[in-house]
Computed example of a mutant assay.
Amino acid sequence: MKFTSVDGQPKKSIGEFTYDTLKNKILTLELRPGQKISENEIARKLDVSRAPVRDSFVKLAQEKLLDIYPQSGTVVSLIQLDYVEEGRFVREHIERAIVKQACEVLSEDHLFQLESNLMMQELCEKKGNHSKLFELDNEFHKLLFYGCGKIRTWEMMEFMNSHFNRLRQLRVFSTLEWSEIIAQHKHIYELIKQKLPDQADQRMSDHLRLVFFEKDCLVARFPDYFKL
């Protein structure tokens, strides 16, 4: 059953809350790759019964985020590099089309939202708030999809990108240079603003291929998190 809050917005069911919370903890690496978890432990920490936890485990296993071993237990799945590459491939080809469309259709309001996002990225880099910077990085790309009216496309892509996004999340714990990522975001924004779709397309492709260079560094630093 769902309830409605005082502001009229629907509240999540217990099942949705349990699933969303668990998935977020996996994607943000609060639950680490390879970490063993149990229904009893999660139910106790979330103050819910075992039933929604069990259902969430099944869904997350179907999404390749949990590995369930009968008679043995449940483990947060290791990051698989073939899934990372598949997610990156899908994202690159879709987002290159999106950025070209953005050059034609983004409103002044959406351009303002992108510019505001970039200002916050620069502030977070100066403050060393890399966790918030990661959120803003994701929000920058999400704004492009929303500005083009492709909300469901973004949601579908995010569903496929769980392993890719966990690798990206490792940036928060690494010494990778965020200034280069921000500079690329700013360049993409300027090309959209100037309505230069072919150049924006190429810049987005270069940007999303950064993972090729980051991957080896991250695997070397966090070898226990990857299934090689």
Rank of each mutant, 00 (worst) to 15 (best):
R171H: 11
Q113T: 07
V105M: 02
C103V: 08
L144K: 15
R152M: 09
Y146V: 08
W178T: 01
S131H: 09
E125G: 02
D137P: 02
E92C: 12
Y146T: 11
S174W: 04
F173Q: 03
E158D: 11
M119H: 00
M157T: 03
L170N: 01
R152L: 08
F173Y: 15
E158W: 04
Q113Y: 15
L170S: 02
H93M: 10
K142R: 14
W178F: 05
Q169V: 01
C148P: 00
H141I: 09
H163G: 01
E158C: 07
W154C: 06
E139C: 11
E122V: 02
R96W: 03
T175Y: 09
V172T: 04
Q184D: 11
T175D: 12
N117P: 00
I182H: 14
K142A: 09
T153D: 13
G149D: 06
E139W: 11
K150E: 11
S162R: 07
V90M: 07
L114T: 01
L176Q: 07
L167T: 03
I151Y: 06
L167R: 01
G147Q: 08
L167V: 06
L111Q: 06
A183C: 03
T175S: 14
F173E: 05
H93K: 11
R91K: 13
E115R: 10
F159D: 07
S131D: 13
F173G: 01
L170Q: 03
I98K: 10
E125P: 01
A97Q: 10
L114H: 01
S131N: 10
E177P: 03
S174P: 10
V90A: 14
E125A: 08
C103M: 11
E104S: 13
V105R: 10
L123K: 14
R152F: 06
E122N: 01
H163C: 02
F112Q: 10
V99M: 09
L144Y: 13
E115I: 01
E122W: 00
F140G: 09
V172H: 03
L143K: 12
N161S: 12
H130G: 07
H163R: 02
L176E: 15
E135D: 10
E125H: 13
N129K: 15
F145V: 04
F159N: 10
E139T: 08
S131C: 06
E155V: 09
N117M: 00
E92S: 14
K132H: 13
H163K: 04
I151F: 06
R152S: 12
S162T: 14
A183W: 14
F112S: 08
L114N: 00
I181A: 07
A97L: 07
I181P: 00
C148H: 00
Q121M: 07
R152E: 15
H93S: 07
F173D: 11
I181S: 04
R166G: 06
F134W: 12
L144C: 10
K126L: 12
Q101W: 04
S116V: 00
N117Q: 02
S162V: 11
Q169S: 02
Y146H: 08
N117S: 03
Q121E: 08
N165W: 00
R168C: 01
E155Q: 14
L144E: 05
K127G: 10
E108W: 06
G128I: 11
H141C: 06
N117R: 00
L170W: 02
I181W: 00
N161G: 08
D109R: 10
T175P: 00
E122S: 05
H110F: 13
T153K: 11
C148E: 01
K132T: 15
